[in-house]
Design a protein around this nucleic acid. Structure first.
Lengths: 336, 336
DNA sequence: TATAAAATTGCAAACGTTTGCGGTCTCATT
DNA sequence: AATGAGACCGCAAACGTTTGCAATTTTATA
């Protein structure tokens, strides 16, 4: 027979005092004598008492839970970000509920609802590739639940956002290619409606413009954010009469997908075609040739987003959403 | 002023019926007329009602939360496992609370307590490198909270466990090296008290024994589970009069640490020294030469552990702990 | 038409806490 | 001896649900 967890009442009964006194003793309330406090605390220890957060949450109408929604946990960027989030949350006394959308809009909605039901104190969200509406976030606004977007943000919602400087990162990457003498620079872009894709594409375009290289629309192909999209993207570029001499991929997985196909086709990197990615996944340092990429401080993004959220939770209604842009850095390696 | 979430009472008042009726209507109780059900449900929708899991949990004395404790989320193996856990949990209507021990025994204890306080329905645990006691797990036993270990298990606690066949994986790896003609096979082992380290070491020893290769204790060095430990381990082996001709590392990060140092010192892989890892991290496929390793189905481990836990949660007290051993597979690549 | 049975709803208690308010007791001060 | 001030503690209500039971209404049967 399942034994019920020991409660404040059990302690009270054992000690012949009232639950209120026990409660106060445990929370070190000045009204309670040190005598009683000692007795209560030692008995609590002895009886394996653990305060029931559920009951506390109900009473105080707030939980110590922070909800996190990411597309896929196993992606390097997100697991590092979650790591950062957990770190801050732990320090501030929160626990995190993690859920993944699997890049599905529907599941994202379901997750938002589930987290609302769990009465999370706030949410940290990185939206899925297929999310083009924002009704579920409007819901959060109506319920006045604080939330912060990170990395993959939703532009038409007014909320705090933590991103990296995608535009600048892309710009620096492409400019570096230009300065290195590459002329025909292709770009495998991400989903059109995702802001990170747009920013990186714009960075690419701006760099070309600044250096007076005319934009050739055939050199930009669109796809998703995974390795297979890099494969597909490169195949599309292969159809061209003339191969590009450099390739800027929207992120590292895509770059690596292209990387493998490039080598399979017998092209040399960077002699035949230079390659540059985005994120600085650990893997990019180790492949041969090592991949030039743009570092994106995933762990920091998570930490910063969590800090911002907690600040907002604490400050209540009068909080003005902020957008924070973390620096990116070009990591030059041997693929360029 | 923060608006309170709408409750069953609010709906009841609006409709001039009792909270009980609303509750029953929402849960589709047969006692309630379809008429009323319709009215309740549409108003609930309209008012953005979301059931309060906190209150439900308190009343029913059980939550829909599963606690997860891992050493570090950002490690590939664990993020993949968490991904699997979340997948099953989602399907079964549970949410997961993720916390990391950062390889610290103390923090692991704190996390266990926090999760007990959050009244999780069960826990999934992979212990830290520094955990050599088990008092905090005894606590779980006393409270009769179901929990399952995965990957890094605690042998002296009777609980379900999901692991991969570390012994067999190591055995196959080393036997493969032997059959390939390598004679002096070194092993960079993990922390001595971790079962995965022991199993892999035993696999190594057994393979040597079977093939009548005498065990040279100088060829086994101990360390942690990270890249830096691979670096250190290889440096220790460098001190030997004669270098080993093959190296079996306790896991991929360690292998990769060694990998880099081996190349830095100008040795060729596999000509001068063969190298073999453990886990089949995505990265191992892409480095040059690609790394022979033992695949370890992280995602499956997570799924299976979650399934086992949920089964135990459902079955109540009369559940006999099981140990499940998932198959490993030798992935032969170019480093051997 | 009376009565039983079935359908529908409401009352109230409970889950484990927290907390405002009031009560009792002990002492020191007039 | 009367008063007041602290010190310490308990009562009871509340948080949002669920649920056994009783109460009420409707419908079917005799």
């Amino acid at each position: 027979m399942k034994k019920n967890p020991v409660t404040i009442k059990d302690i009270a009964k054992s000690l012949n005092i009232s639950p209120s006194t026990v409660s106060r003793a445990l929370r070190d309330h000045p009204d309670i004598s040190t005598q009683t406090k000692k007795r209560v605390n030692s008995l609590a220890e002895e009886m394996d008492y653990h305060p029931d957060s559920i009951a506390q949450s109900l009473k105080q109408r707030r939980t110590n839970l922070i909800g996190v929604i990411v597309p896929e946990i196993k992606h390097n960027f997100f697991s590092a970000a979650i790591s950062g989030i957990e770190e801050i949350a732990y320090k501030e006394g929160y626990a995190i509920i993690v859920s993944q959308s699997n890049e599905s809009y529907n599941r994202e909605c379901v997750n938002v609802r589930a987290l609302i039901s769990n009465r999370v104190a706030g949410l940290l969200i990185s939206i899925s590739q297929t999310t083009e509406q924002s009704d579920h976030f409007k819901l959060l606004e109506r319920q006045e639940i604080p939330f912060v977007f990170f990395d993959r943000v939703c532009e038409d919602i007014e909320a705090s956002k933590v991103v990296v400087d995608d535009f600048d990162g892309a710009f620096k990457a492409v400019e570096y290619l230009i300065n290195s003498g590459y002329k025909r620079i292709a770009h495998i872009a991400g989903p059109k409606h995702l802001s990170i894709s747009q920013c990186r594409l714009n960075g690419y375009l701006s760099a070309l413009k600044k250096h007076k290289i005319s934009y050739d629309e055939n050199l930009v192909v669109y796809g998703g954010l995974n390795e297979e999209d890099g494969v597909k993207g490169f195949h599309r570029l292969l159809q061209l009469d003339q191969l590009p001499d450099a390739l800027f991929a929207v992120n590292d997985p895509v770059a690596i997908g292209a990387f493998e196909k490039i080598k399979e086709h017998g092209f040399k990197i960077p002699e035949d075609i230079a390659l540059i990615g985005f994120s600085n996944n650990p893997i990019t340092r180790l492949i041969e040739p090592s991949l030039t990429t743009v570092s994106q401080p995933a762990y920091e993004v998570g930490k910063r987003a969590a800090e911002l959220l907690i600040e907002q939770i604490k400050s209540g209604e009068n909080f003005i959403p902020r957008k924070e842009v973390l620096k990116t850095e070009l990591i030059v390696r041997n693929s360029t």
